[in-house]
Simulated scan of single mutants.
Amino acid sequence: MDRKEFIEKIDSKLKLIRNEKGFTQDKMAEIIGISKKTLVQIEKGRSSLGWTGAVAVCSIFKDSQVLQMIIGGDSEDIIPSLAFKSYEANYDNTMGGKIWWKVIKTQDDYKVQQNIITNHFRILDRKNRRICSSFEIEYIEKRLDELCANGGPQ
């Protein structure tokens, strides 16, 4: 998934997210900081939230089940991977990938997982804390080798 596809997915499900939360078009437009006219155009597929708007929707509605279904879990995982080439977090706790992730590789105290919806990768430690994420498997493999060789994050 790239930014364009991410934005298109958020655009296409904006009405479902709004309905899930029980908001009118007026209220939803106010919440995400756009005009009602723009919201109507987005919901009809004639306009777009763009990168900033899509990120805002993900941030504001991160508990949305609709949103989780279209991006394969937590938006806090994919957005940094789309914003940066590769992303190193402050070792945020995760649920360990029970729903949206498949384990690609395990090595020492680490596991590499791939999201089944977006196909991006991440490394988790033995406590299921996110070490890094990226769409580039080469970066993930290199980072895993570094972690294992150095005995942990540096």
Rank of each mutant, 00 (worst) to 15 (best):
R3G: 02
R3Y: 12
E5W: 05
F6Q: 08
K9R: 09
I17D: 00
G22Y: 11
G22E: 12
G22S: 08
F23K: 08
Q25I: 14
Q25Y: 14
D26I: 09
K27Q: 04
K27I: 11
K27L: 09
M28G: 03
A29Y: 03
I32M: 00
G33H: 08
I34R: 06
K37Y: 12
T38E: 11
Q41P: 00
Q41M: 12
I42N: 04
R46D: 15
S47D: 15
L49F: 00
W51S: 08
T52A: 07
T52C: 05
G53L: 07
A54F: 01
V55I: 11
A56N: 10
C58L: 09
S59N: 15
I60F: 12
K62D: 09
D63E: 13
Q65W: 11
Q65A: 13
V66L: 08
L67D: 02
L67N: 03
Q68T: 07
M69K: 11
I70K: 01
I70R: 05
G72D: 00
S75W: 15
E76T: 11
D77K: 02
I78T: 09
P80T: 03
S81C: 11
A83F: 14
K85Q: 09
S86V: 08
D92H: 11
D92Y: 15
T94N: 01
M95V: 08
K98H: 10
I99A: 00
W101V: 03
V103N: 07
I104Q: 12
K105I: 13
K105P: 00
T106K: 13
D108R: 15
D108F: 12
D109Q: 13
Y110A: 01
Y110T: 02
Y110C: 04
K111V: 07
K111P: 08
V112N: 00
Q113G: 07
N115E: 04
N115M: 05
N115R: 01
N119Q: 15
H120R: 00
F121T: 07
R126P: 14
K127T: 07
R130D: 01
R130S: 07
C132H: 04
C132D: 11
S133P: 07
S133T: 15
S133A: 09
S134T: 03
F135W: 01
F135A: 04
I137P: 01
E138P: 03
E141Y: 10
K142N: 10
D145N: 14
L147S: 03
L147A: 09
A149Y: 14
G151F: 01
P153L: 06
